[in-house]
Design a protein around this nucleic acid. Structure first.
Length: 802
DNA sequence: CGCTCCTGTGTTTTT
DNA sequence: CACAGGAGCG
């Protein structure tokens, strides 16, 4: 399947240095590609041999240094493209690096086959050596969902109570062990309670089941490779020679398995360059070990440590605010970021009554920045981002932006490939490629409904097991022997015949894989199933299926596509319209925006209560790093906000401002006054209505009562606020009283049942009227609440007031 | 076997 | 509150 060749690579490894130099030298570019590097970056680029730790703070040109380093390796002839092992965490990062290396050298670097994510590289390696861990090289890669379903089966099979042994949780535990590179035998049993012992037993069974299925999960990709390297010195040595240089991006995010894998590969030549920032380690919860970066110098004695500290991204105030927050963490390697950029605007801080008002304010702020405000240049929506702690916070913003028609894009939202219909379709593809894929079979036996329920599936499973064959074969036997009769039996027979036919088509390549895929979805009745479905989301699902088919165009065959999907998580269908980005703080790492909004800075939400409960001080420090990551995404304007009340699980809860707010250095922060004060707003206690709209942080500000941290919550300001806030019911005459900008004079002249048109959502029917808000069931966009002034009766589309 | 209603549970974060 | 998964009925 993969089209790399061992031979090339090993040939290259035996090549003399002079040959290399001749081959790689591109004298014309040599002068250019290092231009514009600062001394630290240049050092990082030029220190090619031996271990190097590059500590690169946020916005210090890390990727530039890293890509230039690759270019330098190539140009000096130290390595050919396929001799550089270069690992990243995300496909996006890998892609960007490829692009940038290509740009530096003024051409696309063909090759660089070993620039990729840990996972994609390990898949390639493991396909070559699968037999060493009892797998066939065409193993399938299970996603989280498959993993959990498998685990559930094992739990049920061993007669355990699913409630007491939640499959999800066990899968999580096993993942954690795999992250630490523990095979079932290696899990420490010293402190093993009953639970752990059961878990280890299930882990063992799970692994053997995976072997039977010829499948691996994400964790296995690394774990198996580590095992292979440890057990087979010869193979390890091959690769040590093969990969002459090793580069690692985001080293602070590596887990133990990844660390071991890297150490094994680099242990002979020690040409390893790790780039990272301990202050941006935010993946501890999924096994990342900040310790890896902290002990690099111990692992590789004599390592060159290079600090990139000049920040090119943010203004002084933003950088200082971020530094002030992160200073609260202990055990840092320590960096002092500096910038020669302008002072810029202070970090802006604003409190709101509740989450909805926060969203409303942010929406208005975005619109006014888009127009250009306070003498500032207009800012494109593409240059603004809202970064939230938890994805559920996105909802308030989406709701609001839909209402006011502000275009937005959610990054890393519900993933395309995780959607129900996509996963179903993929299961069909998987079966067409390999009939042995039992999990795929289970997924679609009865989708669309074929009258095959639990009972039928069990019969098939029994049949398969007792004959030692796959489920598809088991099903075939069930039909032949009449073990499943009647309506279900007939349908099953048809399914099996269909599967055979589709498989033939894949093997014979009689049609293009795209035609095969379309036909498959048609003939199986899957498309029909959604066409007959009258629920609102059915149309969208059909759209997604179309998109899936379109995605196939980028691949030569179904196999290649499935491989890609298993590993690729990001699916950004770029459209050209300018949009505000909404994403989690985690998703924002590595990105930058001129204007950044950081809402929801409230204790419990951010820092997250759960994080603190589960990991105590360690958890809090990770949250603080998250705050640091958030602030440092901003180039020019950074706005932090919080709300006094928030709905949690449908319950109103009053919130405390985040402790991180107290850690922002006063001199870099400006406290804004909410637009409509109602008897003294949160961020402006003690101020009168006609006070200046912004005031610098001062003693009278309730939030910044400089009490010791322990009694922040007993501070007079806090108490005052608590007394005032009896929940949002307290603002029953809200909108008018606060003089907000909603135009209530535009009372709707619509009646229920009217056909209407909206610029963004298209046509729909009015189903509900609440003052100036209309509930509309849109044909395409589903039901929404929209302010009446954005609506016109159908037929007057040209009059939409935008 | 499939559908509906009900209950319980959970919202970090993702390769 | 919203969604998933289970129980119970048709």
């Amino acid at each position: 399947m993969s089209s790399f060749s061992d031979d090339d690579a090993f040939e290259a490894a035996e090549m003399s240095l002079s040959q290399r130099a001749m081959m790689g030298a591109r004298p014309t570019q040599q002068a250019n590609y290092m231009d514009g590097l600062n001394p630290a970056q240049r050092e990082a680029v030029e220190a090619l041999d031996g271990p190097v730790l590059m500590l690169a703070g946020a916005g210090t040109g890390k990727t530039k240094a890293l890509t230039t380093r690759i270019a330098h390796l190539l140009v000096t002839g130290k390595a050919r493209p396929n001799e550089i092992l270069s690992v990243t965490f995300t496909n996006k990062a890998a892609r960007e690096m490829k692009d940038r290396v290509g740009r530096l050298l003024g051409e696309t670097v063909e090759g660089m086959p070993w620039l990729g994510t840990f996972h994609s590289i390990c898949v390639k390696l493991l396909r070559r050596h699968a037999e060493l861990v009892d797998l066939k090289s065409n193993f399938t890669i299970l996603d989280t969902d498959d993993q959990i379903r498998l685990m559930k089966q094992l739990i049920v099979a061993s007669g355990m109570d699913e409630k007491r042994w939640p499959a999800r949780q066990l899968a999580g535990i096993i993942d954690g062990w795999k992250n630490r590179a523990w095979t079932p035998e290696q899990v420490p049993t010293a402190e093993a309670g009953a639970f752990d012992r059961q878990a280890v037993r299930l882990y063992t069974e799970y692994q053997s089941r995976l072997r039977d299925l010829n499948a691996v999960d994400f964790g296995d990709l690394l774990l198996h490779m580590v095992t292979i390297f440890q057990r087979h010195q010869d193979i390890l040595q091959q690769y040590q020679r093969y990969f002459r240089y090793v580069l690692v991006d985001e080293y602070q995010d590596t887990n133990v398995a990844q660390y071991l894998w890297l150490r094994l590969l680099a242990s002979s030549h020690k040409n390893i360059c790790c780039v990272g920032d301990d202050d941006q380690s935010i993946y501890g919860w999924r096994g990342a070990e900040v310790g890896n970066i902290l002990r690099f110098e111990k692992d590789f004695p004599g390592a060159t440590v290079i600090r990139l500290e000049q920040n090119y991204r943010s203004t002084h105030h933003i950088l200082a605010a971020a530094s002030g927050v992160i200073a609260g963490n202990k055990g840092r390697l320590g960096k002092t970021l500096w910038t020669d950029r302008e002072e810029g605007e202070k970090v802006r801080l604003i409190g709101h009554w509740d989450g909805e008002e926060e969203a409303r304010w942010v929406g208005e702020e975005i619109e006014s920045m888009q127009r250009g405000t306070r003498g500032m240049e207009p800012v494109s929506l593409d240059h603004m981002a809202i970064l939230v702690r938890a994805s559920h916070q996105m909802r308030a913003f989406e709701d609001r932006f839909l209402t006011i028609g502000l275009p937005y894009r959610v990054i890393g939202g519900p993933r395309f490939y995780e959607r129900l219909e996509i996963r179903d379709a993929m299961a069909y593809f998987r079966l067409a490629v390999s009939q042995d894929d039992d999990l795929a079979f289970e997924r679609i036996v009865n989708t669309p409904k074929r009258g095959l329920g639990d009972k039928a599936v069990q019969t098939i499973q029994r049949m398969a097991r007792s004959n030692g064959v796959s489920l598809v074969e088991g099903a075939r036997l069930c039909v032949q022997t009449g073990a499943i009769k009647g309506k279900g039996g007939k349908a099953l027979g048809e399914l099996v015949i269909g599967l055979d036919r589709w498989h033939q088509q894949v093997v014979a390549e009689s049609d293009t894989h795209i035609e095969t895929a379309e036909m498959l979805l048609d003939e199986s009745g899957y498309t029909m199933m959604w066409q007959n479905d009258k629920t609102p989301e059915a149309a969208g699902r059909l759209e997604n299926l179309k998109e899936l088919i379109k995605a196939l165009e980028n691949f030569d065959n179904l196999q290649g596509f499935l491989e890609h999907v298993a590993l690729i998580m990001d699916n950004e269908s770029e459209d050209m319209e300018e949009k505000v980005s909404i994403m989690t703080l985690h998703a924002a790492k590595g990105l930058e925006f001129p204007a950044v909004f950081l809402p929801g800075w409230e204790d419990g939400l951010f820092p997250s209560q759960r994080s603190m409960d589960e990991s105590g001080m360690k958890g809090l420090e990770e949250e603080r790093r998250l705050a640091y990551v958030g602030i440092t995404r901003a180039e020019a304007v950074c706005t932090i906000s919080f709300a006094a009340n928030r709905r949690v699980y449908g319950q109103w809860q009053s919130q405390l401002p985040s402790r991180f707010i107290d850690e922002l250095p006063e001199e870099n922060v400006e406290v804004l006054t909410p637009p409509g004060l109602y008897g003294g707003g949160y961020g402006a206690a003690g101020m009168s209505m006609n006070a200046s709209p912004a005031f610098s942080m001062a003693r009278e500000s309730t939030i910044f009562e400089k009490a010791s941290k322990a009694d922040v919550y007993n501070s007079p300001g806090w108490k005052r606020m608590q007394n005032r806030n009896q929940g949002p019911r307290g603002m029953s005459q809200p909108i008018e009283a606060r003089g907000l900008t909603i135009d209530t004079t535009a009372t709707s002249s619509f009646t229920i049942g009217d056909r209407v048109f909206h610029q963004k959502f298209g046509y729909g029917e009015v189903v509900d009227i609440e003052g100036d808000k209309l509930g509309i069931e849109f044909d395409k966009a589903g039901s929404k609440k929209v302010v009446a002034k954005f609506i016109v009766p159908a037929g007057q589309e040209n009059d939409v007031p935008f």
